[in-house]
């Protein structure tokens, strides 16, 4: 996890496949017209990689799922901070 400088630009979470596509698009400056099929979520299949901004013990960091390869991970989505459950 790398620490990030805080600015007024809001960092965004991004799927690794979209990031790679954006980077290759930038490099070749080619318009990608072919629709890349989305990975489906299914037990027994690879968890789609992503990179996302996070808050961790006083610091603003970037988390990449693939950095956790070799470890068990529990990924918990929830509706929102300050909700009641």
């Amino acid at each position: 996890m790398e620490e990030k400088k805080v600015s007024c630009t809001r960092p965004v979470s991004v799927a690794a496949q979209d990031q790679e596509r954006a980077e290759s698009q930038q490099a070749s400056d080619e318009k990608v017209t072919k629709e890349v099929r989305r990975m489906s979520i299914m037990v027994g299949r690879k968890a789609p990689d992503f990179q996302a901004p996070a808050y961790h013990k006083g610091e603003f960091v970037t988390v990449k799922l693939s950095d956790y390869l070799g470890k068990w991970v529990t990924l918990c989505f929830y509706p929102g901070d300050f909700t009641f459950v």
């Binding site: 979520i41 693939s66 390869l69 070799g70 989505f77 509706p79």
Partner: peptide, 21 residues
């Protein structure tokens, strides 16, 4: 519609494979 992530919990093994959701 709600603009939120619903409660979803995924157990991912050391190979990066989803074992439970």
């Amino acid at each position: 519609a709600a603009g939120i992530d619903v409660r979803g919990r995924f157990i991912i093994d050391p190979d990066g494979v989803i074992q439970a959701m």
